[in-house]
C-alpha cells in the first residue's frame, strides 16, 4: 500500500473524473505537505450531557434517547472551544472530503497538538468513496485545559491507494454520508451487535 506524496496528491486534487480527490476548501497552499494534507478544525462540536447520561446502551437505546445524551455546540469562527482534561468531544474537519474509489486515507493528529495532550482521532480510516466532513474524536489526555479555535490545522490526512478500487464505494447506503458536522455514534445501526447484546437462549 503506497502513500501518496505531494505531486500525486496535487494531481488528484487538480484532476477530474473518477480519480479526483476533493478536499474543499484548502485555505492555504501550505496545507499540502510532503505526504499529507493538513485539515482544519470545524466549528461544530458534540459534547455529552453528563448530568442526563445513564449508561450508553448501544443496541437498546432509542434514537431519541441517544439525542438526550448529547448536545451540539457551535462556535463562531474567531471564538474558541475549551476541551478539559479527561473529556471527549466530537468535532469535525472544516474541509469537506470526497474520496475516489481507489484511495483510502488515514487521519492522524498533528504532533504539536499531541504534545499538549490532544488526541484527535481514534477511528482513523477514511474509506474509498467517502463524502463529507470527517468526525474527529477529540480528547484531552493531558492535564491542562486546551483552547481550540475553529479553523486551526488540527490533523493530517495520509492517502493510500486501494487496490483494486472499491466497486461499491459509498453508494449512499453508509452510516456517515455527506455529513457537514460531527456525527454522533450510529453503532445502534450495527445489526450484528444486537446478536451479542443479550443472554444466550438454549
Amino acid at each position: 500500500m503506497s502513500t501518496l506524496t505531494t505531486r500525486e496528491i496535487e494531481n488528484r486534487l487538480k484532476g477530474t473524473g473518477a480519480k479526483r480527490l476533493v478536499v474543499t476548501p484548502v485555505l492555504a497552499p501550505k496545507q499540502i505537505g510532503d505526504a499529507s494534507v493538513d485539515v482544519r478544525l470545524g466549528n461544530q462540536f458534540i459534547i455529552f450531557r453528563l448530568h442526563t447520561c445513564g449508561v450508553f446502551e448501544p443496541y437498546k437505546m432509542l434514537m431519541s434517547q441517544l439525542h438526550t445524551m448529547q448536545e451540539r455546540h457551535v462556535v463562531r469562527f474567531g471564538d474558541s472551544f475549551v476541551l478539559h482534561p479527561g473529556t471527549l468531544a466530537l468535532g469535525s474537519t472544516f474541509e469537506y472530503i470526497c474520496m475516489p474509489a481507489d484511495l483510502e486515507a488515514q487521519v492522524e493528529g498533528r504532533s504539536s497538538w499531541a504534545r499538549v495532550g490532544l488526541q484527535v482521532a481514534t477511528a482513523t480510516s477514511v474509506e474509498p468513496g467517502f463524502k463529507g466532513v470527517l468526525t474527529l474524536e477529540l480528547s484531552n489526555v493531558g492535564t491542562i485545559p486546551l483552547r481550540l479555535y475553529p479553523g486551526v490545522r488540527i490533523a493530517q490526512l495520509f492517502f493510500h491507494e486501494a487496490k483494486p478500487p472499491a466497486t461499491d464505494a459509498y453508494t449512499g447506503q453508509r452510516k456517515y454520508e455527506c455529513a457537514i458536522g460531527p456525527e454522533f455514534s450510529k453503532i445502534r445501526n450495527d445489526r450484528d451487535g444486537s446478536v451479542f447484546a443479550g443472554p444466550i437462549e438454549e
Partner: peptide
C-alpha cells in the same frame, strides 16, 4: 457530485 458548491473552479485555481 455531492460536493458543497463553496468554490468556483478546482484547486489550486479555486476561489470562494
Amino acid at each position: 457530485n455531492d460536493i458543497p458548491p463553496n468554490e468556483v473552479d478546482t484547486w489550486p485555481d479555486s476561489s470562494p
